[in-house]
Design a binder for these strands. Sequence first.
DNA 1: CCTGCTCTTGACAGCGCTTTCAAAATCATC
DNA 2: GATGATTTTGAAAGCGCTGTCAAGAGCAGG
Lengths: 347, 347
Amino acid sequence: MSVTVTLMHVAREAGVSPSTVSRILNGTANVTPDKRERVEAVIQRLNFTPNVQAQALANGRSFSVGVLTQNISSPFYGETLAGIERGLEGSLYYPLVVSGHWQAEQEQQALDLLMRRRVDAMIVLGGVIEDEALQQVAERVPLVAVGRNVLGLTERCVLIDNREGIRQVVRHLAELGHREVAYISGLETQQDAVERREGFEEAMRELGLPLRPTLMRRGDYTEASGEQEASDLLRSGVPFSALVCANDQMALGARLALYRRGMRVPEDVSLTGFDDLFSSRYTTPPLTTVHQAVNELGQQAAETVLSLLAGDLPHMTPYVPRLIVRESTGPVPHPLTAGGLLMHDSS
Amino acid sequence: MSVTVTLMHVAREAGVSPSTVSRILNGTANVTPDKRERVEAVIQRLNFTPNVQAQALANGRSFSVGVLTQNISSPFYGETLAGIERGLEGSLYYPLVVSGHWQAEQEQQALDLLMRRRVDAMIVLGGVIEDEALQQVAERVPLVAVGRNVLGLTERCVLIDNREGIRQVVRHLAELGHREVAYISGLETQQDAVERREGFEEAMRELGLPLRPTLMRRGDYTEASGEQEASDLLRSGVPFSALVCANDQMALGARLALYRRGMRVPEDVSLTGFDDLFSSRYTTPPLTTVHQAVNELGQQAAETVLSLLAGDLPHMTPYVPRLIVRESTGPVPHPLTAGGLLMHDSS
DNA sequence: CCTGCTCTTGACAGCGCTTTCAAAATCATC
DNA sequence: GATGATTTTGAAAGCGCTGTCAAGAGCAGG
């Protein structure tokens, strides 16, 4: 394609030295107004844009921050990325994002890729890669982790109190009179999935509700697994009046399973999620869930990284999730007759 | 942070010249096995990773392709991005993505940003920026547009036959006996929104169905607008038995409006979308929609870009969307009594 | 008009890598 | 073992920019 115009061309054309052009570009030093105008005119005319690679090489900073995400198309990570994008806006920094797909090997490759590109900082969203690999990265550039605790870097982790979030859900259900509540867990290779499940168990115990192994299911955070587990649950015939899902996506899947069995939400069973994805406002009925402000978390991470880059030592305020009661939860259907709340035919 | 190790360090440590190390890194030329081993050992030991910026500068290619998207957190663009990511996988290229948020100015800034980073190619997803700006970019690097036609670059556009997609929807509804069908259009500053609406109008005429202005609504592709327009529609009292939405997100919003009014889908009204977002499989009931293979479109765009970069002139197969019938559409409720299908109280 | 000061400017080295060119080493052949 | 062909190797230039340094220009004061 056409020849790219360099700072050199601009300098020649304007009759000044490259240094002068550089100075004008970066505002590094004073330049007499007439030269400045001359140069700026030439820049306009030639449509010159500085080569970021060369700038990076020359001054040792790439003005980019690496983002290791897991699945760019998941609504959860999508919103976080949008938050990061927003947090970086206005700064000179630009996010480079790579997906790890929850696979340690791919995550490692992603980190390598980003280090090769000499990102000035790194933001890590979840992931299953060992802490050690992240510590290694953190030795070279400032690192902030979101939704995951990294040993030795705890003060650089934007954490969510998953236990507290689930506890609020259980408390809400208990207040509505639910006792038999089922749970679909997330992929337990992920820290947060474990925390949420444990939080659920703790809360149930605290509130004196029965914790039945047959009502504890294990999904993988996807809609499909939510549907699968919910439908297994239904088929098992064990009665329950509320179903707590470890995230909104699984709740969505579970909702479909309930629909297929003709169960109404919340009249027959109450359903809850976790994350408060944007679209959870629009499910039928709108989903009761735990708000995570995913977007803000991303933004906070970006801002933290920026101040880290500016040399500050920012302090992270831990994020407290909050229950959003919508319309997928309601009072227990039948006034607690001994022996079972819901009877499912075995068809 | 710690000093970064350069190719120079490796060379010195291994007792060879920088050229040799470079040759080993890139497989550019033969190197005697013992030297190769020596160097590779040092690379391992020093944990050396080549600086991509420097490489880019030296050989004039950055091995990155720019992606101008609109809203990174929208499920639609998220899936497209995942497709692009996948299409680029295995190649040496890496996507740099920036969001334009459907604002010409921001899109221009995004393009500038990417050109500064000297991307080797560009993928444009939709957008409202003038064709001229894209033509200008296309003069410098190979460019592929998805879901948008760019004057003078049509052969580089991955297009979707929006008219045909909507026509299939209308035909499907007609076969089910629907006559009074309402339509919620997308943001008509976007090409595809116009095409879909026109396609709807054409199809209705072709099939001899009445085209009532009062049943034509104008949304903006968001869930909120879908809810708003559907609820206005309902409140207006004009009877209709089917509601066609220009995309899935608005259908989701409309679904909620129907739910609020106690209207069942599809028993009382049939509902359709467009895009076949992943989550549309999980709405209640699962949504009848037009499949766009957003993911594959992204992948195809990426592959096209790669062959363009390899110097080929790939030929683009235009994409034909296809109707996916799920459970949100059904036969007309009442057997067509004169004067109105549905009566809405004015409350 | 000269001295001493400050402000503006250009030459040049260098960022980390690739690649060309020619020298050095290796190999095959007579 | 000498010759030429071939392969391996290192020196050096250059990619496009920044930043240092010292020279040049501009100015105030004497």
